[in-house]
Design a protein around this nucleic acid. Structure first.
Lengths: 146, 146
DNA sequence: AAAAGTTGATATTTATAAATATCAACAATT
DNA sequence: AATTGTTGATATTTATAAATATCAACTTTT
């Protein structure tokens, strides 16, 4: 039933997502406020979560509850993702980009004026979608290093 | 007085270090147990801290108390330091190296049999000495990326 | 040789991050 | 039109990480 649905389709309202994950609605909103997740939003501003979102959240929960990494720790780890390399953005973009130049949170928590990311939706970006776990981030760093 | 002493010379016993940092002796030993710091040890097993050690510890304290990154978070961040690039170790070394292949703690917390690091003292290594802060680590990742 | 400091190990305290609850205003569903 | 669910904001609870304390055995200092 849940097997053959599109991973990326935003289907579940917040209460369903909370039930499936066995956490409270408030916790989901907190993760969002901290910038760990970016749920889809309807025109009415209501959230919808995809299967991929749920998997992402499970992964974040493991980091917090099993690996004992604080939310600020996770944000800092995300800030180390070499997004510039994933997007292959220009030297000029990098100069303008807070994500490139700071290290307090993930790139998707910054505004991106005057960069290749300006009009893109971070929810649909590889940087957000593909590097949720620490091993994925480390493999990325390996792959871009000489 | 403290200005013109060698940064790297291990001079201060643990009680002096604790006083200078305004923390308890126990906390210093805890940071060591967690693998965040590697103090110098005398033949009698007693610890000595250098000025550089004190600066490193201050930096770790800021991460914990101001940036609210948990100790496990810091360990995970350190595990992302591309040590293989700093040491320029061989393909074979990398295959044998837990530091390269895992991501729970800094490279200096692993054994290094059959690698270039085998007989080196991690306390004296660039990886340990030069990449204490998050911005330093991010700059390193930038510098090795294409 | 006595005093002061260190060792590791275990137990306890405290500070606070993470999670939950409550609320009135608004949206969606039947 | 009534019920159910959502929104953000603020306040509260709880779980636990970080820090401290205690201990006997061992070193160093004077």
């Amino acid at each position: 039933m849940l097997e053959n649905i599109d991973n990326k389709e935003p289907l579940f309202p917040i209460s369903t997502a909370a039930k499936l994950l066995n956490i409270s609605v408030h916790t989901l909103r907190m993760y969002e406020r901290e910038g760990l997740i970016i749920p889809f939003k309807k025109e009415s501003n209501q959230r919808l979560y995809s299967k991929a979102d749920l998997e992402r959240i499970e992964c974040i929960r493991k980091a917090i509850n099993e690996s004992k990494i604080s939310i600020n720790g996770i944000k800092t780890i995300y800030s180390l993702i070499p997004c510039w390399s994933v997007m292959n953005c220009s030297h000029k973009d990098r100069k303008n980009c807070k994500a490139y130049n700071e290290h307090t949170g993930p790139c998707w928590n910054y505004e991106h004026p005057k960069t290749i990311c300006e009009k893109r939706n971070c929810r649909d970006c590889d940087v957000y979608q593909k590097y949720t776990q620490c091993n994925e981030i480390k493999e990325l760093i390996k792959s871009i290093s000489r």
